[in-house]
Simulated assay, not measured.
Amino acid sequence: MSADTLVTLAGRTALACAPDGPRICGGDDATEVIGAALGHRVELVVLPVRRLAAEFFTLRTGVAGEVVQKFANYRLRLVVVGDVAGHVTRSTALRDFVVEADRGGQLWFVDTLAALEERLRVETLRQDAGGR
């Protein structure tokens, strides 16, 4: 099993979770990741999609809400990296959830770290320009 690492993306330090780490099946599992993030004093956690239990992608289970709320409670941004297209095509509710999450700042879904870095770069430029 590889270890979680610190990465710098668009000038921000993030905790990049190892793809082969423990699966996140609920809030208690998220707490482990949150503890590591707080220990490293980061505000951004990058979690590979394969670390999320299948229940995360079935919204009626409540797992996604529980996990995202845990991160929000600790003021940590969560970014899920990887292809969620298969999950999204099976659920209109999940598709809407992903679209809405991507409009906000708490939870993002991106395909690659490069896409995340670009999104963070654009966000920084907007903030530097006064939010325009």
Rank of each mutant, 00 (worst) to 15 (best):
E117S: 09
A53H: 13
A101Q: 08
D29L: 01
G11M: 07
D20C: 09
A30E: 00
T89S: 14
T13E: 13
C17D: 00
Q69A: 14
C17K: 06
R121A: 15
S91V: 01
R121G: 13
T8V: 12
V110Y: 01
T58E: 15
A115D: 14
V99D: 15
R51H: 05
G11Q: 06
T5E: 01
L47R: 04
Q106Y: 01
V68E: 01
F56N: 12
A10H: 02
L94S: 05
R119C: 10
G65V: 03
T58H: 15
G130C: 02
F109D: 14
Y74I: 00
D28H: 07
T124G: 14
L59Y: 12
A36I: 08
A72Y: 09
D96K: 08
V88W: 15
D20I: 00
A64L: 06
L116Y: 05
T31F: 10
V33I: 04
A114I: 05
L59S: 10
C17W: 06
T31S: 12
D83G: 11
V98M: 05
R77Y: 02
P48K: 04
V80T: 03
V88H: 13
L38W: 10
R132S: 09
T92Q: 14
L15A: 07
C25P: 09
V49G: 12
E117T: 01
E118N: 13
G82V: 00
F56R: 08
R132A: 10
R103T: 13
R132Q: 08
L47Q: 09
A72K: 11
G26Q: 06
V7P: 05
G131L: 12
G105T: 10
V110K: 02
A93C: 04
V45F: 11
A3E: 03
L47E: 06
R77L: 02
T112F: 04
A3F: 05
A36T: 04
R121K: 09
P48N: 09
T61I: 00
T13G: 00
R12N: 03
Q69M: 08
G26P: 00
E55A: 15
T8F: 15
R103S: 15
E118S: 14
A64Y: 01
V33E: 01
L38A: 09
L78E: 01
G35F: 12
E43A: 14
L107Y: 05
V45W: 05
T61P: 08
G65H: 06
R75V: 03
L47W: 08
V84F: 04
R103K: 13
Q127H: 13
G26W: 03
V33K: 03
R126E: 08
R51D: 00
A37D: 06
V33H: 02
L107D: 05
D29M: 02
R51A: 02
F109N: 13
F56Q: 12
M1W: 09
A36K: 12
L15Q: 01
S2H: 05
V98D: 14
V110D: 08
V7K: 02
V42L: 01
G21R: 06
L76I: 04
M1S: 11
G35K: 09
E123I: 08
V81F: 02
D128T: 07
D96Y: 15
L9C: 03
G21Y: 02
G11S: 04
D20Q: 04
T13K: 11
A36F: 12
T8Y: 15
L78G: 01
R23N: 11
I24H: 00
V99C: 11
